[in-house]
Structures are given as structure tokens and as C-alpha cells.
Simulated assay, not measured.
Amino acid sequence: MSESVPVHCPACRREHLYAAPSYPCACGAPVAPPLDPRGAPTAVAHRVWEEQWVTVRCASCGRRGQWPTPELGCPCGTVLRVPVAKRPTPPVERPAFHSVTIRTAVDAVTAAALYLHRLGHRDIRRADQRPPSGIGLAARGILAQVDPTVRPASVRDVECLWLTAMTDSSTCVYFSLAGYTEDARTRADTLGVPLFVLDRTGIPRPVNSPADQLDESGAG
């Protein structure tokens, strides 16, 4: 069970004691978003889909998942969004990454698979569901899309990957040879989707904060 924190309603000044509900991870362990006792709650004026989810890491298996954003209904009628604490993730020591030179689409997929293996995923396979573009890879708790085309990945590409991963209760990651449109990068930041660019040497380069975090922490 998560720790209770005091929550002050900005509308009526009432004070509540709130504990975030826990949900079962795919490994079976209960997971609850860590609350920020020093953060100020915000009133929910209107709902935006991506703001209703928060990325939380399971302490038992290290899997990252999307969980409902903590909210509290005050008797005055105000719905309060409770702030979530940002906990630093300690770096994980991993062996050196042995890349492959990318000449073909198969090389791009191989490079992405090698990188996922280095992060700690051992059961990498072709994804059951084929993505709208590129090639899908899957492992326990993660779904990856590899785009070997010369077209930068679009907002739709990122959103489709995220929605598919949500359906499978998995986290996701995108690998692209040609990079991403500016809108796609902005959307990925909002949804917490790690974006990597594969250079011709086969080394995935993180291009947003979620990718930096994944590169540092691995699969747990």
C-alpha cells in the first residue's frame, strides 16, 4: 500500500489524507504511483487523455507501465489531481554494446534487438501485431517498433505504438533510421515514449528524456 499524503483542496480549503490505489503489475506485484508530499494538487478543469496516465516502474521486476494518474474527489465537487514524485533511477551496469553496421532493414532490426538484449530483455521476438509501418519486436513487458525507412517517424506512428503497448499492458520504445518529425518528438515526450535514432554503425542514440532514462536504467 502506498504512503498517505495530505491533500489540500484549493477550492474549499478542506484537507484530506490520500493514498494512491495500487494495481497489479504483469509480474503480479502491486504497483502504486509514488506521491509527492510537497507538491500542490491541481483542480481538473477538463480531461486530456494523456494526462490521465503516469509512467510507474515496478519495484519487483523493473517493468515500466502506464497507470491511472492519482485523483481525489473532494466533497465540494472539485476533482484534484495529486502530484506524483519523480524518483531518480540508479544506473545499471551492463556489458559493452556490440553493434552491427546497418546496410539493410534486417540489420536495423538486429541492431535494435541487440540493444534491447543489452538492456536486459532476453525473450525478444517478432511482435504478434504488425505495426502500420516498420517492424515490431516484443519481449516480456516491452513492445518496440523499428522503422528502417528514409521517412521520419510521424505523430501517428508514435501514437499507434503507444496505444498498442497500452492494450498489451507493456511499455514501448521506438527505433528510427531517419529520425522523427518535431510533432512526433513532442507527442512522444507527452506520452513518455522513448525515441532512439539508429545511426549507420548500428548504435541507438536516445533523442528524448524517456530514452535517456531507459538507456540509463535498462530493464531492471
Rank of each mutant, 00 (worst) to 15 (best):
P90S: 11
A139T: 00
A43V: 15
R156D: 13
P33N: 03
S217N: 01
G65H: 09
V84P: 09
E159H: 10
V207Y: 01
D147K: 02
T167P: 01
L114N: 02
R151C: 08
T186W: 11
P152R: 05
H46F: 14
A40G: 09
V84Q: 09
V106C: 02
A127C: 13
T149K: 06
T101Q: 09
G134S: 08
V173R: 02
D36P: 06
W162N: 01
R205I: 14
R94K: 11
S169F: 06
V146R: 02
L116N: 04
S209M: 14
P10I: 08
L114M: 01
D123T: 00
T42V: 14
G65S: 14
A20G: 08
P37T: 14
C61E: 00
A43N: 11
T69W: 14
A19M: 14
Y174V: 01
W162C: 00
C27G: 07
T55I: 13
W67E: 03
T164Y: 01
Y23H: 15
P30F: 06
A184F: 04
M166P: 05
R205C: 10
D199K: 05
V193K: 05
A43T: 14
C12H: 00
T149W: 02
R156W: 06
P91C: 11
I203F: 04
V193T: 12
P34R: 04
W49R: 11
L198I: 01
V155M: 10
G218M: 07
P148I: 08
R140S: 15
V207C: 00
A111N: 00
M1H: 15
R118G: 05
I102N: 09
V7P: 02
I142C: 02
P30D: 07
L72F: 01
V158I: 14
P70K: 10
Q52H: 10
P70C: 13
G202M: 07
C27F: 06
A219W: 03
P70H: 09
A85V: 07
C25E: 05
E159M: 09
Q129V: 14
W162S: 03
E51Y: 05
P68Q: 12
S22Y: 09
G77W: 07
G192E: 10
P83A: 03
C74I: 04
A184R: 07
L198V: 00
E3H: 13
S170N: 09
A20W: 06
L17Q: 12
D147I: 11
C58E: 06
E15C: 11
A111T: 00
A188D: 02
Q52R: 15
R94P: 05
Y180C: 06
L72W: 01
V48H: 12
R64I: 07
